[in-house]
Simulated scan of single mutants.
Amino acid sequence: MSETCLICDELNGAVSVPGGHLESTNLLAVFQCPILSPVTDVFPGYLFVVPQRHVPGFADLDDTEAAAIGVAITRWSRALEAAGAEHVYVARIGHGVPHLHVHLVPRWPGTPDDVSWTDVDEWPGARRVGAAAAADFVEELRHAVADSSVNRSSDGAD
């Protein structure tokens, strides 16, 4: 891990994330976008999926890491939809922090149709919650993922 990387600091606990890591393995972690100064609230369900290894982009992942990231994106998108999101946007921007982090951004009911995906977390009526409520929502998502309807494998069984 890098000594000067915000994502690495979120992985190692130097920067706290509301509710802690939703998932943390030797390959990846998933967590609520943290509360960073001067912001005092968060958009609930705005998640990051990140590899544990400090790499700048998808091309730098090995096949095992790439597969794990893909499964995590799917799993946590399902959890957000189970929690009521109408849509989950998936984006990788990578300009500000050179550690791959995939954004999962929910579009919650009541978001006006004219609000772009890039603004669903910032329009005046967007859901905003404090740290405690964000941690509670993270716990709800954990329960959704524990539910077998969110975790689906392709083992061929129906």
Rank of each mutant, 00 (worst) to 15 (best):
F48Y: 06
V49E: 07
V49R: 07
V50M: 15
V50F: 09
V50N: 12
V50Y: 10
P51R: 00
Q52D: 02
R53H: 11
H54A: 12
H54C: 11
H54I: 08
V55K: 07
P56V: 02
P56F: 01
A59C: 06
D60W: 09
L61G: 13
L61T: 12
D62F: 12
D63W: 04
E65Q: 05
E65N: 02
E65W: 00
I69P: 10
I69M: 13
I69Y: 04
A72S: 13
T74D: 15
R75M: 10
R75S: 10
R75G: 02
S77R: 07
R78D: 00
A79W: 10
L80G: 07
A82E: 09
A82N: 02
A82W: 04
G84Y: 07
A85N: 01
A85P: 00
H87I: 04
H87V: 13
V88C: 11
V88F: 08
Y89T: 14
V90P: 00
V90A: 06
R92K: 11
R92C: 13
R92I: 15
I93S: 12
G96A: 07
G96H: 04
V97I: 14
H99S: 02
L100I: 10
L100V: 10
L100C: 11
H101G: 11
H101W: 07
V102A: 03
H103R: 10
P106W: 05
R107L: 13
W108G: 06
T111D: 04
D114E: 15
D114G: 10
W117A: 13
T118H: 10
D119N: 08
D119R: 02
